[in-house]
């Protein structure tokens, strides 16, 4: 087991490396570089013109006169050794000051959506499989399909509209106005959770729907397996047997798809957060991209990817813990 964990950690390294390279490429993809953007910004804000000499100086200062691979190495060593992600142009602050809290928020949102999905999908999936072709099963299947068909942002918009129109309140944001700038306290956490449930539902709907379908299909497969008959011939009650054998087996592919779901959640959180104006990484990234704030954008993409890589690691470990076959191979 220890060896397995170690191996998984080692496997992460090339992935992380590749993630950082892709992020760096995205930083450099748009025409122009950081200094161009900086100059354009200064010109727009103060009308001040930058002389070509100054421009060269700025490039030198930000190491932008170096070839790209060198820049990459500079950037990545800065991150690894000093936690220095570079400067955000628009906020005029170091990226790391901006990103950590947002990232934590993204993580909290994704994780709670995940829990929401589990809590809702497992019982419904089990019910659907055990009572195949019942009214409840058809209902779950139908609702599941609808859940899959509505894009996250559309669901968010509809909820916004409904709450605005019929309850006359705004559901945007993760905090009530009085808590936004308040220091962390229990009350603020409580406030966070009271706001969290709408994005959680929005974000979780598609995942819940697909999970219900996966679980139902898996469980239907497992219910026909010989070991279920064996368990029955041992005289176990039906409910116990269901939980101990087929459900446990059906959860395996479920756990391995956990990672995909988590990736999708992190991914989906980006857009939902923009619509619902939540203080997660999403809007930050979006703004950064629109303003060509490339260090911020690149770092945000990279850190989101790191988050999902960690999620993968977690689901792999969970799977190994659950399934002795993986542990022993």
């Amino acid at each position: 087991m220890v060896q397995y964990i170690l191996k998984r950690f080692l496997y992460m390294i090339p992935t992380l490396l590749a993630v950082s390279i892709v992020s760096f490429i995205i930083i450099n993809l748009p025409p122009g570089d950081f200094v161009d953007a900086l100059i354009a910004q200064r010109r727009a804000e103060s009308g001040e013109n930058v002389t070509p000499e100054e421009e060269v100086g700025l490039r030198k200062f930000y190491h932008l006169d170096q070839p790209l691979p060198v820049q990459y190495v500079d950037w990545i060593t800065g991150i690894i050794l000093e936690g220095d992600f570079g400067m955000s142009l628009r906020w005029n602050r170091p990226v790391d000051q901006l990103i950590w809290e947002r990232l934590a928020m993204t993580f909290a949102l994704s994780l709670s959506s995940m829990l929401f999905i589990w809590v809702v999908a497992i019982p419904i999936g089990v019910y659907s499989a055990v009572n195949q072709y019942s009214i409840g099963d058809y209902l779950a299947t139908f609702v599941g399909f609808i859940g899959l068909a509505i894009p996250n942002f559309l669901l968010a918009l509809v909820l916004l509209y409904i709450s605005f129109r019929f309850f006359d309140q705004s559901v945007g944001g993760l905090f009530s106005p009085e808590y936004i700038d308040a220091p962390w306290s229990l009350a603020k956490v409580a406030d966070l959770f009271s706001h969290m449930w709408i994005p959680m539902v929005v974000l979780g709907t598609a995942g819940t729907a697909s999970l219900i379908r996966t679980l139902r299909a898996n469980l239907l497969d497992e219910l026909r397996r010989p070991y279920v008959t064996t368990a029955r011939t041992k005289g176990l009650p039906e409910y116990w047997l269901l939980i101990k054998y087929p459900l446990r087996h059906a959860l395996n592919p479920f756990v391995s798809s956990l990672n995909d779901i988590f990736v999708n959640l992190v991914s989906g959180a980006t857009i939902v957060s923009i619509v619902l104006s939540l203080q997660t990484t999403g809007p930050l990234l979006f703004d950064a991209l629109r303003n060509q704030d490339m260090y911020l954008a690149g770092s945000a993409i990279m850190m989101l990817s790191v988050l999902t890589v960690l999620g993968t690691l977690f689901s792999d470990l969970l799977l190994a813990w659950l399934d002795p076959r993986i542990r022993f191979s």
């Binding site: 010989p226 070991y227 008959t229 064996t230 368990a231 011939t233 041992k234 005289g235």
Partner: peptide, 17 residues
């Protein structure tokens, strides 16, 4: 079941979890 009358099957690999 499992007490007075018990069963064994063809493929023990799939009949046991």
């Amino acid at each position: 079941r499992g007490k007075d009358i018990t069963m064994i099957f063809q493929e023990p690999m799939t009949s046991l979890s």
